[in-house]
């Protein structure tokens, strides 16, 4: 009989453990997507209906065609906002309720790897929803995009996503401690954020100060930048795109660093107050 001692166990590197954690947490979402294929219908066909209503209200008002394009882009980006809110930030609350949070806390990995795994796992379904919204929108409403600068468009989108998921990680630290407030907060951050971030109209119309305040939510500048690069010769942008990109890069860094500290702080607080395992509050 062989006995295994601690000397036989070679501890994997920190990086390897965290990469494994990212993939480990993303895997259930991928498996879940295969196991419940109904989401393909619910996440592709059905969301376009609500978005189409906003397109038709612009038609009823006699708006220029590019406003319909604005709605399509805004509608597509709702997928990412909802994913950040419900499948990442609020997910820590859900994990706590399910009894998984303490298991994450025990594992010798960064909490950000778990959240990164959630983001990665949910990214596929979210992107399917966003892309299908754009494609269906293009086909049904004959919206024409004239891409001004491909590279700028990709960069603005990428840093919007980085900043957005960084913000989601920051939120997750709060959701780790909250009870049902978490659920209601996510609910509350839906329509009001659609409003202030200009999901369905250019944020520029709010005026400089209001639009600048809304720019702390990365999707505000992300949407504005993407619209400016997708619709040539339309003067509804809030700031020049390069400036919006710089702000998005800064926001990405700030949110990710803040998320790290907030997660550590909230975990410590949760342990001290014994709130990490509280369920059904």
């Amino acid at each position: 009989m062989t006995t295994i001692t601690s000397l036989d166990y070679k501890r994997p590197s920190w990086i390897r453990m965290n990469v494994q954690a990212v993939f480990g947490r993303s895997l259930p979402r991928v498996i879940g997507a295969y196991r419940e294929p109904s989401w393909i219908f619910f996440e592709t066909v059905l969301p376009i209906l609500g978005i189409a209503a906003y397109v038709y209200i612009y038609k009823a008002m006699g708006a220029p065609d590019y406003y319909m394009g604005y709605v399509i882009i805004g509608g597509a980006m709702t997928a990412y906002w909802l994913n950040v809110l419900w499948s990442m930030a609020a997910q820590f609350y859900w994990e706590k309720e399910m009894g998984n949070l303490e298991l994450y806390m025990m594992a010798p990995i960064s909490r950000m790897s778990i959240l990164g795994g959630m983001a990665l796992g949910g990214m596929f379904a979210t992107t399917v929803r966003a892309v299908s919204t754009i494609i269906i929108g293009l086909v049904i409403f004959n919206v024409t995009f004239v891409i001004v600068d491909h590279i700028l468009l990709v960069l603005v989108f990428a840093f919007t996503i980085f900043a957005l998921y960084g913000m989601g990680m920051m939120f997750a630290s709060l959701y780790m401690l909250w009870g049902r407030e978490a659920w209601h907060t996510s609910n509350l951050l839906t329509e009001p954020i659609y409003l202030v971030s200009g999901f369905y109209f250019p944020v520029k119309y709010f005026g400089f100060f209001m639009a600048a305040a809304a720019s702390f939510i990365p999707i505000t500048l992300g949407l504005d930048g993407m619209r400016q690069t997708l619709f040539a010769n339309v003067n509804t942008g809030f700031l020049p795109v390069w400036m919006e990109l710089v702000v998005l890069i800064v926001l990405s860094l700030v949110f990710i660093v803040l998320a790290k500290y907030m997660l550590a702080y909230m975990e410590k607080l949760g342990k001290r107050e014994g709130r990490l395992t509280m369920r059904w509050q």
Binding site: R35, E36, S38, W39, F42, L46, I48, L49, A53, W86
Partner: peptide
């Protein structure tokens, strides 16, 4: 009969009525 992540169903059905 659906999983929790099928929350989009409500959104979609409401979308039919909204549209």
């Amino acid at each position: 009969l659906t999983a929790r992540h099928a929350g989009g169903m409500n959104e979609g059905i409401a979308g039919i009525f909204y549209l």
